[in-house]
Simulated assay, not measured.
Amino acid sequence: MDEIELKLHDMSSTLQPVDAYALVLEEVNGNRKLPVIIGSLEAKAIRIKMLNYKLPRPWTHDLFLSLTRELGVTLKKILIYKVEDGIYYSYLFFDNAGEEIKIDSRTSDAVALALRYKCPIYTTAQIMDEEHLREESDSSFSVTVNMVGISVLKEALTKAIAEENYEQASRLRDEIRRREELKKQYKE
């Protein structure tokens, strides 16, 4: 099975329904993206690690990391191995004194753990190929403005201006301003 390494590209902060987020993974050696819809608690666990927040008490994923370290078990990689009815399935691959242990996991938990262990995230070539074909043939789901953060919007704005796509650039500029204004309001 051909495996493709992924990295965390971005995560939305707004998506309908309100308690859903889009975790966007991207090929390490490519530009295809894999959007995974996750719940708010899992999104918080991932965001905490993305922003390197130091919490006063460990969350479940941090507790899991501490426990496995104390037991001498190391997470070596995660593999998103299947998609069924829009749900992504993952395995955690641990090393326990040279013995490989494979455990089934929700993809959101697997990514939260991969960030804490600093281990690679993989998916299959088949999943990436199918996702890429689906995006090309079906516009009902793709990486949209609501699924990415301000940094990605700013990159898209720069690209739209360079390509002289001023309509797109103005929409992106307006969305960036809207989010920055919301951010300012929450800080006050």
Rank of each mutant, 00 (worst) to 15 (best):
Met1Lys: 08
Asp2Pro: 11
Glu5Phe: 10
Leu6Gln: 05
Lys7Asp: 13
Leu8Ala: 12
Ser12Tyr: 00
Ser12Gln: 06
Ser13Ile: 01
Val18His: 08
Asp19Ser: 15
Leu25Thr: 10
Glu26Ser: 10
Asn29Leu: 11
Gly30Asp: 14
Arg32Cys: 08
Lys33Ile: 02
Pro35Glu: 12
Gly39Glu: 12
Gly39Trp: 01
Glu42Met: 11
Met50Gly: 03
Met50Tyr: 07
Leu51Asn: 08
Leu51Gln: 11
Asn52Phe: 05
Lys54Pro: 01
Lys54Trp: 00
Lys54Leu: 10
Lys54Met: 02
Thr68Asp: 10
Thr68Tyr: 15
Arg69Gly: 05
Arg69Met: 09
Arg69Cys: 11
Val73Phe: 02
Lys77Asp: 09
Leu79Thr: 07
Tyr81Glu: 15
Tyr81Asp: 15
Glu84Ala: 13
Gly86Phe: 02
Gly86Lys: 01
Ile87Cys: 02
Asp109Asn: 07
Ala112Gly: 07
Ala114Trp: 04
Leu115Cys: 14
Pro120Met: 04
Pro120Ser: 04
Tyr122Asn: 02
Thr124Asn: 04
Ala125Ser: 12
Met128Pro: 04
Glu130Met: 13
Glu131Tyr: 03
His132Gln: 11
Leu133Ser: 15
Asp138Lys: 09
Ser140Phe: 00
Phe141His: 09
Thr144His: 11
Val145Cys: 00
Met147Val: 12
Leu153Met: 13
Lys154Ser: 09
Glu155Gly: 05
Ile161Trp: 07
Ile161Pro: 09
Ala162Gln: 13
Ala162Thr: 10
Glu164Tyr: 08
Glu164Pro: 01
Glu167His: 06
Glu167Gly: 13
Gln168Tyr: 02
Arg171Gly: 03
Arg171Trp: 07
Arg171Phe: 11
Leu172Ser: 02
Arg173His: 12
Asp174His: 09
Glu175Gln: 07
Lys184Leu: 09
Tyr186Cys: 01
Lys187Asn: 07
